[in-house]
Design a protein around this nucleic acid. Structure first.
Lengths: 235, 235
DNA sequence: ACTCCCTTTCGACTATTGACGAACAACATG
DNA sequence: CATGTTGTTCGTCAATAGTCGAAAGGGAGT
């Protein structure tokens, strides 16, 4: 399976190139939803071995360890129906995203919604207590175009490998449409960032509270400055 | 530079996932056109260290070594004007290739043109003495569509990271047009494979001989069988 | 409060990596 | 034939990786 091989290379590359291989190893295990015990069984080692790696006890894991680790995660996914691999295949097959997607990144390792809030100079306006959660990447959208252009298939693709990401709506007018779209979608993002307005529609806030999605209002002036701030803080 | 980071991940991933990290490390050094001595200087180690890795003395290079290795190659490229990084950027930015490109792969490590010839059940018809050279990947084209559709920019992109690849022309009628196209292009492929005909135009053979490009006539029946044979022999 | 699951920490041990430097081989050039 | 460049092999040693297993912590469920 081609997507499987390409995903392997992507995962291994991210781990090796990461400023913190330990954190990136843990990120991928969490993306695949596998416990340390399950993974250890599949690799034929003790659970403490996995924990040692993810905690950074070994600073420079060997290539063979990384290769085995990646292969084991993908094997688990395949045994569960290839959900992650298929999701990645959709990302590959779709070619360039529409212009509605301004930017889209996966983090080498997750950062908290709180840190994301700091990066975008944001003000929490919904579910502030949930800002400790981990965010794995972001997708920035041009809201008017997104509403007009995104097909249901493309809407799935903006979630990349995991929905635990920041969905950033730029050029927002009153802040209701984004939440309506999220409300009717089966998949919910880990965090919503609104940009381009000062006051948010109360109904939008109610939807977010109900869906338990933290929402931030970014204070950075201009789309490009927002994207720049995010890119400069890539780990 | 974004393409730089993505290329880093790609290279590191290929090395780690490869069935032979040693050979893939050497492939990438050759793709970047850097000597072992130059690379050693840049890494602050002795040349024999590089040779030890490429010869397979160390079976499982550590992540840090791979990261440093990749970074050093890209630094060399940047100091020379970012030719490789820019080439990769063009690959990324172009989105999906036109339908003229049936398939396109880079090998984890190069194989000889002779091995490629065996894989496609080929008969050498030009420059047979050059079949010992290393081939780093392949691009399979639908010839009639390629002639009609490929812009000069897209023509460059079919070479991927290196031109030392097999350019495969399928649905060829008499075998002259492909060589005329190659003749006028500034970049020459490492190997040409013709498919879909029994006799090749003598002028085409003359052009290939003149350009010192080995040419093979594939004996596999059918485009799909040809691509399948190539994919099944990916290293 | 107890049990179970998941994860972390760390001492200890063996195997391998990372690296140097010497000796050598192959090829191109003058 | 001598010299320079590029690359290979290998003995050697210090440092680190790979791993086990014991002990322990935190959270959820009963």
């Amino acid at each position: 399976m081609d997507a499987r091989h390409i995903l392997s290379i992507r995962m291994a590359g991210e781990i090796v190139i990461s400023a913190s291989p330990a954190k990136t190893i843990k990120k991928w295990r969490n993306v695949f939803g596998v416990s340390q015990g399950d993974l250890a069984s599949r690799l034929g080692v003790s659970p403490s071995v996995i924990s040692d790696y993810e905690s950074g006890r070994r600073k420079s894991p060997g290539s063979e360890l990384v290769r085995k680790f990646v292969a084991a995660l993908i094997d688990v996914d395949v045994s569960r129906g290839s959900q992650i691999v298929r999701g990645y295949e959709r990302l590959l097959d779709g070619g360039a995203m529409t212009g509605a997607v301004i930017d889209m990144r996966e983090f080498a390792f997750p950062i908290s919604a709180e840190e994301v809030c700091n990066i975008v100079e944001g003000t929490p306006i919904a579910n502030e207590s949930l800002l400790k959660k981990d965010i794995y990447g972001y997708t920035a959208l041009d809201s008017p175009r997104a509403i007009l252009e995104l097909s249901s298939d493309e809407f799935l693709r903006i979630y990349g490998l995991t929905s635990e990401r920041a969905l950033i709506f730029t050029r927002v007018s009153c802040g209701r449409s984004p939440f309506v779209a999220i409300r009717v979608s089966p998949i919910k993002p880990g965090l919503v960032i609104l940009h381009g307005l000062k006051e948010v529609d109360p109904l939008g806030i109610m939807i977010a509270e109900k869906e338990k999605i933290p929402v931030i209002l970014s204070g950075i002036e201009g789309d490009e400055a927002l994207i720049k701030a995010l890119r400069n803080n890539m780990n």
